[in-house]
Every structure is written in C-alpha cells, then in structure tokens.
Simulated scan of single mutants.
Amino acid sequence: MKLTITELYEKMHQNMGDSGWWPAESKAEIIVGAIMIQNTNWRNADKAVAGFRERTNFDPNQIRQLTTAELYDLVRPAGFYKNKSRAVAAVFTWLSQYNDDYQQASQSLGPTLRKELLKLHGIGDETADVLLTYIFEQPTFISDKYARVLFTQLGIPNLTNYQSLARQVKLPANFTSAAAQDFHGLIDEFGKVYFHPLTKFQESFLTDDRLIL
C-alpha cells in the first residue's frame, strides 16, 4: 500500500499507540538528554542524564553554575565529554538571555530560531530539530538514523546522511507539535524492534507498504 507521511504516522500510531516521547520530566532534561545521546546509545546517555538529575535536578541556574571539571564528570558516561560539556554550557548560557523562557526565545527569534541553534557549540542538524520539536514545540521532522532506515525500507532511495532525508520531508501543515513528537518516538521505538537485525522488518506491519513523499 502507498502511504503519505500522514497515513504512515496514523498507521504507526494505530498499531503502536502513543510513544510517550521524549521520556523526561522537564524540558531542561530533554535538552541534556538530546546532547548526551549524540554518538552513543541510550544506556550510556541515561547514565549521564541520571548524574545531572542527582546533581542539579535540571535547574538551569544550577547547570550554569557547574565548573568545567564538574561538567566533565557528569557527561563522561555518555562519551565525548569535552564536546558535550561545552554544548550543555553553550545551550544553557544562550537560554539565560531569554530567562529560560522557551516561548520567549521562540517568539523573539521566529523563523531564525533553527539558524541560531546551529550556531551553538555541539548543536548539529539532528539536535537542532529535536530541540525545535520538543523544546520549542515547532513541528519538525527528525531525520535520524532510524528514520532513514525506515524510509529506505519504504522505498525512498539514497538516504546517506541527515540532510538527504531532511530536505525531502516537510511535515503537513496539520501536524501539531504533539504529533511530531509522537511520530519521532514511534519511528525510534519501531526501529528498536524491527531493525536489529534489519531482516525483522519483514515481520512488521509496514512490510508491504511504500511511502509517497
């Protein structure tokens, strides 16, 4: 069956239910988690996130007060601790000019918000889109590895990097931020079940479908 983006999301939601993504108790925790997950797995990222929870309770002011050495110790379980520590410091320092008010930042920057996020140390395309979707509630498609694998299985060729898919996908106007958040979560949860190994995709409820972009 040929599916549009909306139909793909609806079919995944019908078969899987709500994804519950991003699993966090605050937006500050999502920010930390989005940086920690870069180039590692959830197990390692969760160790670092747990350390931040214990040390700062994800209070932005407490995060900003951490010394470089303290940041290194907290981030170390997630790997790339120097780069990720700089990224955490950069994002929360940047947010301070908006009084940690995400809506204020979004309204002040308008359509330039993504560009401003990409200027921050350690924030690339994928993390910027995660922040747009989950922090600033701007419906954005996150073209991560699981999305590229899924869309390849659904007939979209040559998905070699983040931009190769991102430039092809624009969420329909009727996608709410909640739907965009859920869609990303469903794709990643689907990938955890059906992409290890990839041959398991043939057992999935999407095996006979093809996507229309």
Rank of each mutant, 00 (worst) to 15 (best):
H121G: 13
S164F: 07
Q62P: 02
G17L: 07
H13K: 14
R53W: 05
T127G: 12
W22S: 00
F92I: 15
W21M: 11
I30N: 14
Y162R: 13
I187P: 01
G155T: 01
L71I: 02
I187F: 01
T127F: 03
L171I: 10
R55Q: 09
Q65P: 00
T207Q: 15
A147V: 06
L120E: 13
V75T: 06
A105L: 09
M12D: 11
V149H: 04
P60S: 04
G124F: 06
V149K: 12
Q65L: 09
A89S: 15
I5T: 12
F58N: 11
S108D: 13
T176G: 03
K47P: 03
T133S: 10
H13V: 05
Y134F: 06
I142S: 03
A173C: 00
A90V: 06
A45Q: 04
D46N: 11
E70M: 02
F136W: 10
T199C: 00
Q104T: 15
K200P: 00
D101L: 02
E116M: 08
E189W: 04
N44E: 02
D125A: 14
Y9V: 06
S96V: 02
Q107A: 09
A28H: 11
A178M: 10
R86F: 10
L131N: 12
R86G: 14
T140K: 04
D101M: 04
A50T: 10
L198C: 03
D144M: 07
A45H: 05
H196L: 08
T133W: 00
N83K: 11
T160P: 01
Y81H: 14
V130P: 01
S106R: 15
N44M: 10
Q62F: 02
F141P: 15
Q181T: 11
N61Q: 13
N158H: 08
D208V: 03
T127S: 13
E116S: 08
A48M: 04
L165S: 05
T93F: 03
Q163S: 14
R148T: 08
G191S: 04
V49H: 12
F52A: 05
G122T: 15
E203Q: 09
K82G: 15
L118Q: 13
Q14T: 11
F52Q: 13
F151K: 07
N158C: 05
E116A: 07
E25I: 01
T152F: 02
W22D: 05
F151H: 07
P172C: 11
N174I: 09
H13L: 12
W21H: 15
Y98D: 06
R114L: 01
E54A: 15
W42C: 00
G124P: 12
W94Q: 12
E29Q: 14
V49T: 14
L165Q: 02
T176N: 05
V130I: 10
R86W: 07
W42G: 07
S177E: 13
P23N: 00
T133P: 01
F175N: 08
F201W: 03
D188M: 11
K27I: 02
I212T: 09
A87H: 12
V32A: 08
V88Q: 06
E189L: 08
L71R: 04
Y9T: 05
F201N: 04
L159T: 01
F205W: 14
S106C: 14
N39L: 11
A147T: 05
E54Y: 02
R148E: 05
Q163P: 05
L3Q: 09
D46K: 09
T40C: 02
T67C: 08
L71A: 07
Y134C: 01
I142F: 00
K119C: 09
F141M: 10
